[in-house]
Each structure stands twice: as structure tokens, then as C-alpha cells.
Design a protein around this nucleic acid. Structure first.
Lengths: 144, 144
DNA sequence: TTGAATGCAAAATATTTGCATCTTC
DNA sequence: GAAGATGCAAATATTTTGCATTCAA
């Protein structure tokens, strides 16, 4: 999602009504590197819209995903996380602090490369790929 | 898990008491290519142990995973699935019928290869990798 | 003004916890 | 016999559904 466009415009371009809640949810996702869960977004968006319901968060996120605005995924926690960066990219998860980071930019083509390799050698017609790497982040290794 | 050993022996080798429920759960996992969920295992094991509780399934599966007997994972459904094949290997998931298959044997080293590639180029110390590929299985493509 | 979005409440799904009883070693 | 496993019940966590009210276009 381009940082230069305003969110009203982006929503309309995707055939969605521009409500203040939706704009803020999208803004938070686009401005976050944390791959937030519904619960986390609910808490943050509720600060500005105290009457907000979790229902709105879930409905909005589902809709955004259906229109291709965001991606929903699961790193193995049985919690959905959401990402405004829909460009295929792999994730690294810290087994200690549970943070979820994007993979190093040097490996930005990894997901596509691996997907293409599998596509030719599988009984399936492959449409997408999700790659997750588990380990220890720098902070946790240094005991921070 | 070797097919030749009996499950009593395998459990004891892993420091676990051999109860009939555990033996059957392990046998079912080892004999299945379906990557079953807790719920599915519960239904199947309950056929032979009608008093079985879901609690036992979950406790047993957790324990098995802690001892390295099985692997727990999540293909993006918010349901845990379990696999007695602990050898690192990628999975392909049918977006239509939701079946979860192991990747083609020709690509058996894919997970390790990709993991090693990432290990050198990441701020993380990488310990493991999970690769998921989504698409349409042969049956669904042929409209079966 | 009208169809769609929101909020509130309840339900559904999956998993975890507490505890008494029973079983394995 | 003692530590550990099982079963039953209740609790927790996350997501989904139903419906009346409000809002965007």
C-alpha cells in the first residue's frame, strides 16, 4: 500500500466504503512492521474509537483480505496475524519473544523462487507459498 | 517412527509410560498420511476407547511433541495438525478440499536447503523452517 | 434514501486447566 | 506405593454469527 495515497482513496479504489474505522485500521496495518493480530489492532484502534467492537475488526480484516488489500497468515500460534505488505515475502519468528519479522531484504525473492521450483515438481497446481523460519532474534541472543 | 518397533518400546525409549491410549495415538499418527488434527484423532481413538477424553489427546500430543516424537504445525487454518514424520519436509495444501499432503519426494531436501540459505543471511539464528505451498490438488483440478 | 457498516450480544470452535480417580512401573 | 496418566468438567482464547442501529454515498 503506497504511503502517499490517502486511505480514503485506497479504500474506494478497492470498492469499499471509506469509514473512519476502516481508514485507521488500514493506516495502522500499513504503518506497522509487527504483523499485528486482531486483538492487538482492536486495542490500538479502540483508543481512538472507544465504542469499537471486535466484530468490526474481524469483518474489516476479512474484507480487506478478500479484496487483496492485506494478507492473513498464521505462524503456528493458532492466532491470525495480518500484513499490509502483500508482496510475497518470508517471515522469521523468534522462538523466545515470539516477534515476527520480515525476512532480510537480500532474500526478498526467496518465496517466489521456491514457489516456482515447487510448481514444476508437484501434483498440485501451486498458487502461493508461505515460508516461515524459526530461531532466535538478535535481542534474545544477546539476552536483552 | 520405525514401523518395525512396537509402540510400547518406542514410548519407553522416549522416557514415556506406555499406556494403551498413547500406543494407539502414536500408531494412528505413524500410520496416517493425513496430518490429522486433535479432533480427528479423538474421534478415531474413541472408537477403541469409548471413555477417552479430548484432554488425553491434547496432553498426549503435547508430550509427544516435547519429546520429539511428533511435530505440531499449522497450515493457516487456526487448527493444529500433527505429523509422526519429524524429518523436515514441506507441505502442500489444497485450497479447495483442504487436504494437506507431503511435498513430492523429489523435493525432500527442499526445507533443509532453504533453511540453510536463510541461516546465513538473517539477523536470526535459524533453528527450523516450515514451508507451505497452496494450490489445487489433482483431484480438485479434475473436478472429482 | 438505501444498502452497507457498526456495535452489542451470544454462539461456535479449539485448546487449556483443575482435580479426583485410576494405572504404570 | 508413588509418580504419573486419564477422564470429566469448567475455563480460556480466538473467531464467527445474528440482529438492531447508524452511516456513507
Amino acid at each position: 500500500v503506497s504511503q502517499l495515497k490517502n486511505y480514503t482513496q485506497i479504500l474506494r479504489e478497492h470498492g469499499l466504503r471509506a469509514t473512519p474505522q476502516r481508514e485507521l485500521i488500514l493506516e495502522m496495518l500499513a504503518g506497522s512492521r509487527e504483523h499485528p493480530s486482531a486483538d492487538y489492532l482492536f486495542a490500538r484502534v479502540k483508543e481512538r474509537f472507544p465504542a469499537l467492537s471486535l466484530n468490526t475488526i474481524y469483518k474489516t480484516l476479512d474484507l480487506f483480505e478478500q479484496r487483496g488489500l492485506i494478507k492473513r497468515f498464521n505462524v503456528g500460534e493458532n492466532i491470525y496475524r495480518y500484513d499490509a505488505d502483500i508482496h510475497p515475502h518470508a517471515h522469521v519468528i523468534c522462538l523466545n519473544c515470539k516477534r515476527v519479522d520480515d525476512i532480510n531484504a537480500k532474500l526478498s525473492d526467496l518465496t517466489e523462487r521456491v514457489k516456482n521450483e515447487v510448481a514444476g515438481h508437484s501434483g498440485y497446481r501451486i498458487i502461493s507459498a508461505d515460508l516461515y523460519f524459526y530461531g532466535l532474534c538478535e535481542d534474545c541472543r544477546k539476552g536483552r
